[in-house]
Design a protein around this nucleic acid. Structure first.
Lengths: 228, 228
DNA sequence: CTGATTTAGAACTCGACCGTCCAGTACTGA
DNA sequence: TCAGTACTGGACGGTCGAGTTCTAAATCAG
């Protein structure tokens, strides 16, 4: 955590620049992330960010024009990470029987990403600052739910073309699946701070969601056999 | 809670207590509501509440122990209003054919309540202060989604007993219906600040939601005829 | 009318925090 | 090695807000 002042020379851990300036910039972003998530935009102080990053306040203001700019930078960075994790890659089923499994897998990935505590706190943070930073709301929606839904819609269209599903509007169906799976868990998390979902509960929830979805859009109503 | 030292006259909470104290108390709550919704807990100042209520700061502190107590009082009052509006009254359908219409009606009521701008802002406010006031999160969930889902579950069970539906777990089905209807609109509203849903769009959305629901739980798969 | 309570209004304490400035120090790159 | 740059650490101005306290005036009960 406390990178401190070691690593005098190069520390090319990743593709990140290794200068002193860049290193401190990363430390600032990291500290700011923790503090903003923890206390919100107004609650976090630049002073504290500086201390936690083991950096002087002046350095913070050299890197970022203002507290607001720092906030935007932090959220943008996190949104990027989150988006990447969504992994819209989806292996297409070979047979109709595999559709249920593919949907279960997709749902599982969705839940596992969105219920990560850090991302839940990010969501809360962005929601609460929608008035002050409207562009962040848009960015997070498009990088999160929007992207997941669009990806699923594309997949559903392919599967429908192959005759595995019967649907008119892939976007509508994808949206429905998405909220069938995420609606309850996400909203509980928003109001309670977290959710504990055992593996078994999660599987059951997913199976029920997939069951409803396939009852509506599956080529045959026999898809119900998937209940757990 | 705030028994305070008033009650010189009578302040029966029932209708509209008319004492000077009670009148000012209402003015304070009203002003605080507007300001908290607008600027959040940290962003709103007691000073401004007092000014807006045309009242001195001292009067505010005579009525409410602290800023936090005032906040809790405001949110509790609003949560109460919102809860009452949900109107879990639901006319049971007489025939199976009326089930779709009943669900449409329920969905419409849900959307019309939850998308009221004031309640959306309340939701954002409570979500953002979940750390500081966890009890408010619980209260709002239970008074809002929780109550709506429980009410619907009870109705679904009745309809199922009459043979209009086929379902194992009314709570699960009610939860699914709830988020099928509200998931997308509510989450868009959270990130974008508001949603504009024309009457036609809303009807279409509701019909699609009911269609999926009945495909899964309707006694006959013929319920698809409901598509718009 | 009288006495008690409440309120206005402003001053005040105390603290937090943004953003800036400066003089001295550590680091970096050639 | 050495000049130039980045960084430190502390202090500072300015603003703002929570909560308290005091006095004079308004209000209300009996």
């Amino acid at each position: 955590m406390e990178r401190s002042t070691v690593a005098t020379t190069h520390d090319g851990d990743a593709g990140e620049p290794a200068g002193r300036t860049a290193r401190k910039r990363r430390a600032i972003l990291q500290a700011a992330e923790a503090l903003f998530l923890d206390r919100g935009f107004v609650g976090a102080s630049v002073e504290e960010v500086a201390v936690r990053a083991a950096v002087s306040k002046q350095t913070v203001y050299k890197q970022f024009e203002s507290k607001a700019a720092l906030f935007v930078a932090v959220v943008r960075a996190m949104t990027g990470e989150g988006s990447d994790r969504v992994q819209v890659e989806m292996r297409d089923p070979e047979t109709e029987a595999e559709v249920a499994g593919a949907l279960m897998g997709h749902g599982e990935r969705l839940l596992n990403v969105v219920l990560v505590p850090k991302l839940l706190r990010l969501r809360r943070l962005v929601i609460s600052e929608t008035d002050r930073f409207p562009e962040l709301g848009r960015a997070l929606y498009e990088g999160g739910p929007g992207r997941a839904i669009a990806g699923l819609a594309a997949a559903l269209r392919r599967w429908s073309d192959r005759g595995f599903l019967t649907l008119d509007d892939p976007m509508v169906a994808a949206t429905q699946f998405n909220w069938l799976v995420m609606g309850d868990p996400v909203n509980r998390a928003m109001f309670f701070g977290s959710v504990h979902l055992s593996a078994a509960e999660q599987q059951q929830h997913l199976a029920q969601s997939v069951g409803v979805f396939l009852a509506a859009y599956g080529r045959r109503s026999a898809a119900d056999g998937e209940r757990v």
